[in-house]
């Protein structure tokens, strides 16, 4: 049987969801038998090619994130998102309580350890969006695994469901927001 092609990426996040995925211990052997990872931080391949399942960790915070999310969506049949940032905005979305300008000034100029700070500006640096968004406000999402990070058990459950041809919905007892 042909392996299921999976691509993953991370946007504005801490990579904790991917770590949690790697924490599925010996179950990863079974997964690896059935799945081929194409573009992913794990394979370090950046270019998306068409896949069966796309996985996004992280919130959409800048124009680059937006681009990557759209690119992933265009290349996958089913899009799953991991973690509170991707599902709801999470920690990243806390910057929405302040203006973009205030956040940049605080970070690059006012932090106590900064001397003569400067807000970087270059067209190579992706511009911040006014508001951090969960992925479903940018592209259509098919399934969600919340958690900060999601437990490896929840990630494994979602992957197993997908491999068995079902769109996963976490049962209540597996739901975690922390």
């Amino acid at each position: 049987m042909a392996k299921v092609k999976v691509a993953t990426c991370w946007l504005d996040c801490c990579s904790g969801c991917h770590m949690s995925f790697l924490d599925i211990d010996e179950a990863i052997i079974d997964i690896a038998k059935q799945v081929e990872f194409t573009a992913s931080p794990i394979t370090d391949i950046k270019e998306f090619t068409p896949v069966d399942v796309g996985i996004i960790e992280g919130a959409v915070s800048n124009v680059h994130d937006e681009e990557v999310a759209k690119n992933m969506r265009a290349n996958c049949k089913i899009l799953m998102v991991w973690g509170d940032c991707a599902c709801f905005g999470g920690i990243c979305a806390m910057r929405n309580l302040f203006s973009k300008e205030d956040v940049l000034r605080r970070y690059y100029i006012e932090t106590e350890s900064t001397i003569k700070g400067k807000i970087p500006s270059s067209e190579d640096i992706p511009a911040l969006l006014d508001q951090v968004k969960p992925v479903n406000q940018v592209v259509k999402v098919d399934c969600y695994v919340p958690g900060c990070p999601p437990t490896s058990k929840a990630i494994l459950y979602a992957l197993t469901e997908l491999l068995q041809g079902r769109i996963p919905v976490l049962p209540s007892e597996m739901m975690r927001f922390d």
Binding site: G90, P134, N136, V169, L170, M175, R176, F177, D178
Partner: peptide, 27 residues
């Protein structure tokens, strides 16, 4: 603004419990 990950009540929170019950995995 609800952020469970650093909230003191996470685990004892009635709102969180309801969101789990209703499988609120996105908004």
């Amino acid at each position: 603004n609800h952020f469970c990950m650093f909230c003191e009540q996470s685990g004892d929170c009635e709102l969180q419990r309801l969101a789990y019950r209703y499988q609120m995995d996105n908004v």
